[in-house]
Computed example of a mutant assay.
Amino acid sequence: MLEDLIAYAAVACATIYASWRLLPTTIRFSLAEYGVTLAQFLGFSKPDAEGPRRRLEARAKGACGGCSGCASKQTPQQVISFNRKDS
């Protein structure tokens, strides 16, 4: 029984994580803002609500949305090959 509950919890956490990563950025921003307001209402968070929003906006500026490490890298040069047809 305990093993089943652990497996269900792992699947639920993986589902939540995958859903969060696949959501569009605007929806993630609004959900994060809602989470901050809820945490402030319940007394779990400091009154500064701009911190999480700034982190999410900085994270979204990268090419894939996960970080900003590859946003400044140059794209590789294109390789062109010519094939000669025998006539």
Score class of each variant (00 low, 15 high):
Gly43Lys: 00
Ala60Phe: 03
Val11Pro: 00
Ile16Gln: 03
Cys13Pro: 00
Val11Cys: 05
Ala9Phe: 07
Arg84Thr: 13
Phe82Tyr: 14
Arg55Ile: 13
Cys64Lys: 14
Asp86Phe: 13
Asn83Gly: 14
Gly69Leu: 13
Pro24Trp: 03
Phe41Ser: 10
Cys67Asn: 06
Ile16Leu: 10
Thr15Gln: 03
Lys85Cys: 14
Ser87Leu: 15
Leu22Thr: 02
Cys67Arg: 04
Pro47His: 07
Thr26Val: 01
Gln74His: 10
Ala32Asp: 00
Ser45Leu: 08
Asp48His: 10
Asp4Leu: 12
Ala63Arg: 15
Leu56Trp: 00
Glu3Pro: 02
Leu2Met: 06
Ser81Val: 15
Leu56Met: 10
Val79His: 08
Ser30Ala: 08
Cys13Met: 10
Thr26Pro: 00
Asp4Tyr: 03
Thr75Ile: 06
Gln78Met: 11
Glu57Ile: 09
Trp20Asn: 04
Ala32Leu: 08
Cys64Asn: 15
Gln74Gly: 14
Ser45Glu: 02
Asp48Phe: 07
Gly43Ile: 03
Leu38Ile: 07
Ser19Lys: 03
Ala60Leu: 03
Lys61Trp: 05
Pro76Val: 10
Ile16Asn: 02
Glu50His: 06
Phe82Cys: 13
Trp20Tyr: 05
Val11Trp: 07
Phe44Gln: 09
Asn83His: 14
Gly51His: 12
Leu5Tyr: 06
Leu5Lys: 04
Ile27Ser: 02
Cys13Asn: 09
Leu38His: 03
Leu31Val: 01
Thr75Leu: 13
Pro24Tyr: 01
Phe41Gln: 07
Thr25Lys: 04
Ser81Arg: 15
Tyr8Trp: 06
Gln40Met: 11
Arg59His: 04
Ala71Asn: 07
Leu56Cys: 05
Tyr17Ala: 11
Lys61Arg: 15
Ala9Thr: 10
Glu33Ser: 10
Gln78Asp: 09
Val36Tyr: 01
Ser81Tyr: 07
Ala10Val: 04
Glu50Gly: 12
Thr37Arg: 15
Leu22Asp: 05
Asp4Val: 04
Asp48Asn: 14
Ala71Asp: 01
Phe44Thr: 02
Arg28Val: 02
Ile80Glu: 12
Glu50Cys: 08
Pro47Tyr: 01
Asp48Ser: 08
Asn83Val: 14
Gln40Arg: 11
Gln74Tyr: 09
Tyr34Pro: 01
Glu57Gly: 06
Gln74Asp: 09
Ala58Ile: 01
Ser45Asp: 07
Ala58Ser: 11
Val79Ile: 13
Ala12Phe: 03
Ala63Gly: 08
Ser30Phe: 03
Ile6Pro: 00
Cys67Ala: 05
Asp86Cys: 15
Thr26Trp: 04
Pro52Ala: 05
Ala18Gln: 03
